[in-house]
Design a protein around this nucleic acid. Sequence first.
DNA 1: CATTAGCACTCCCAGCCTACGAGTGCTAAC
DNA 2: GTTAGCACTCGTAGGCTGGGAGTGCTAATG
Lengths: 349, 349
Amino acid sequence: MADRKKAILRAVTDDYITTAEPVGSRTIARKYGLGVSSATIRNEMADLEDEGYLEQPHASAGRIPSDKGYRFYVDTLMTGRDLTGIEEKRIRAEYERRRDEIRALIRTTARMLGEISQCASVVVGPAARTAEIRHIQLVPLSSETVLVLVVTNSGLVEHRVLSMEHAMHPSDLDRISHILNHRLRGSTLAQMRGAVLREIQAELSAYATFLDQMFELLLAAMHSSDEERVYVDGLMQLLAQPEFKDVGRARPVLEFLESDDSVLQALADAGSRGLGATLVTIGSENAVDELQSCSVISAPYGVAGRVVGAVAVVGPTRLDYAMATALVGYMAEGLSDILARLDLCESGE
Amino acid sequence: MADRKKAILRAVTDDYITTAEPVGSRTIARKYGLGVSSATIRNEMADLEDEGYLEQPHASAGRIPSDKGYRFYVDTLMTGRDLTGIEEKRIRAEYERRRDEIRALIRTTARMLGEISQCASVVVGPAARTAEIRHIQLVPLSSETVLVLVVTNSGLVEHRVLSMEHAMHPSDLDRISHILNHRLRGSTLAQMRGAVLREIQAELSAYATFLDQMFELLLAAMHSSDEERVYVDGLMQLLAQPEFKDVGRARPVLEFLESDDSVLQALADAGSRGLGATLVTIGSENAVDELQSCSVISAPYGVAGRVVGAVAVVGPTRLDYAMATALVGYMAEGLSDILARLDLCESGE
DNA sequence: CATTAGCACTCCCAGCCTACGAGTGCTAAC
DNA sequence: GTTAGCACTCGTAGGCTGGGAGTGCTAATG
């Protein structure tokens, strides 16, 4: 594509992203000094429309970028940008404050993503069900109840209160904790259960009923914790965007974002690309119907090369792609860093 | 007030609550068999308007209840209602499933409140900072890190990962746990810290630095956990209500509900009335500006006669008060029950 | 005297029209 | 290839109108 055409496409896109109004040839000629008259720009814009990069909302309005136009902009034209010092500082400060509890960390991530991007944000936390167990501990609360505690390699701490039918002595609980930890650290919960059933039954046979109950409870806990992996924030920001001033247009998107399962599924492929890969999905490129009018910027994060979750920004296709990609990338990296440090600590025994 | 007038006010309110359209005299005469003509009803309605119970949105429209009208309806006219069997069953089933983890329980409560009431819902979880400590436990994760675990009497489990400067032996950690538990169970965290500083320094003096760090971390944890006590759900339901079809009208409310601090403060007086008291606040009765066009139904819940949190439904003043009060009351009671059972278990040592 | 029928009146709303402004596309000149 | 000029298109805002819903008033009725 000719340089001047690129410049015009870039100008139209930049302008539309900031003003949310269709951009006319006059505006381009005046605001972006390309050294040509509006008539020339008109001709070029007509070409760009023929080629599918621009669209006219109606016959005699300015142009707006099509999905294809945004795609070209993101791939070729966009001038990358870093976060401002203030933004970075804020994120770092908040991460410093929350590093010792992963759920608070993720919740904070979602909130910051939303506020900085002025869009909706999604963060998928680590899955509990398939994670390796770093530690398991039984804490007696009373003679009939025990707190079952599980720490995974992705820093997740899961706990449940188990009511026991027969009282158990604290030292028994300690012994069970010890055996499970010693023999099975690094397995998933399901593997652990299998191993207990098969191999170490002899040692633990006295506690068969208790262990059964415990695994039952924990597996259910992991399951429901996985249902609650999705943190969404900034829905109000989305409503403030002019393309969503009509509730009828906003509602499908908001409803989609409120349904955790669907969001989880939609972000699944973000993870499949491996760490460090920020993915931009523009309008009709989205597989999900409800998001056809939105763009999604997502990036996976993880530990030790393995993806455990993803962060994403969801906004109108008229999105500040430069800012959003920088932001999403930075947050994903930040999360990975913290997880890595957590993991290092715990395995450095 | 004359019986017929009451009947008319009730009819207008009932009709408006279901249709969201101003109600005319003809409608009343036709749909609600009062045995009088529309002209008579017109006269009565004019009186009711003079007395401030009804309003006309514009000169020649039907009537809608004023805040005062709703107040009279709620206090005197409303026919109480119970939840349907299906609703009760659903709530009970969900509560059964979540009883072993309080945060999941509260999140679920908010979700169900929202879905059943078709309004926004708010649940305030137990405060960690002022709660009594039932149990404190140090779980070694690695030589440098320890998981600090606190269980409060309101069933809250709080945990943080503490990085230690100097490695400590697991048996030391056990010993500290034991002393803290034995001596200080039933204190708040702040009291506990004071006591450690004053009284039992001798026993624990070897661990002064560690204990300092631990209390520091825990107090911060309790603090930030208190920031995250507020669970809001059903914002989309609110958008579906006709009075909020205009985003401009909906935004202040939604923004208010998204700001946890404000919500917390606004619900503070719900707690001050003691357990079992469902509070209905209608439109302008709300102290909060943003909620002047909303009604709030709230009820506190708690353990052992002490209020620890509250549940609430927030909707337009045109709210199904009968259903909402039944629902909110039922949910608050349900939460109290579960907490009571939890508390009983743990103190029954 | 309360109730009712009848009727004029008010007001919102939807549809239609018009004027206007923004922006284009085309043509002809440079 | 670029530019100026101009006719044309289209959406939007403002004004107007007819219909409908609902009221308030008045006079008649039991």
